[in-house]
Design a protein around this nucleic acid. Sequence first.
DNA 1: GCCCAGGAGATGT
DNA 2: ACATCTCATGGG
Length: 268
Amino acid sequence: MMNMETQRQIPAVDLRLTLIDAAQCFHWVETERGFGAVFEGSAVWLRAGEDVTDARLRRYLDLDRDYSAIAGEYADIPFAREAFAACPGLRVLDQPPWEALFSFILSANNNVLRIRSLVYALSRAYGPEADGLYGIPGPEALAGATEEALRALGVGYRAPYLIETARAVCDGFPLDELRDMPYEEAHARLTALKGVGDKVADCVLLFGCGHAEAFPVDTWVAKLLHAWFGMHGSRRHLARMARERFGTHGGILQQFLFHAVRTGAVKL
DNA sequence: GCCCAGGAGATGT
DNA sequence: ACATCTCATGGG
């Protein structure tokens, strides 16, 4: 009985919201076959309403975290309550770190539609193919690319960032150790990479390293921190204040606030 | 034409 | 530490 009550109150994951609309990743596609992507080297198709049993996918979709408990942590903040209520089924992804790093280097001063088209173009040119899908290119593939070739695909000034960072990863940058480092240390390591500033580093930590305290501050989040929480100052200062105020799950709150504002579900 | 987009790097103070 | 400028590219 208790179990049924609990299950009823936990919204099922909303795949479209989580994998496409929330802009945490840019490589999943929706077709008549469902939501598809190359996942750990092979094609995966997910359908709404079907149980996800694969442990790696459950982790990717963050299905084993109690989101109602996290919403409860922020229940005394009216805008947080509105944001959680406006995004049922939204999950914060736990991607492989390279997937997040690659994607968010491309995100700099760019819009979601164009980020998605760039990820697709680069995946088609340099990534693995599986079942008609193109996966995100590995660092080895990009390390061998030329700046001109990437610019020809529309990457623009981010081309050298992508190549240099890919080479750093090939040369032993400890991507897989970021998860177990303290936040500050992992953030400092990431921002040492070309094309990775404070905000991109926070996205990689939040979406790709399990650092739920990372609080990315983009243009939308800067606006809402000012309008709703009276915070002001530089992006770096805003991020630090937000981490201090919202604590160990601040990044999850951030994702709900971000989506609620970006879609207009909660007005600024 | 201007402004914006899940910003970052270089430079000058 | 902070402010300012430039960096591609597409859409409104």
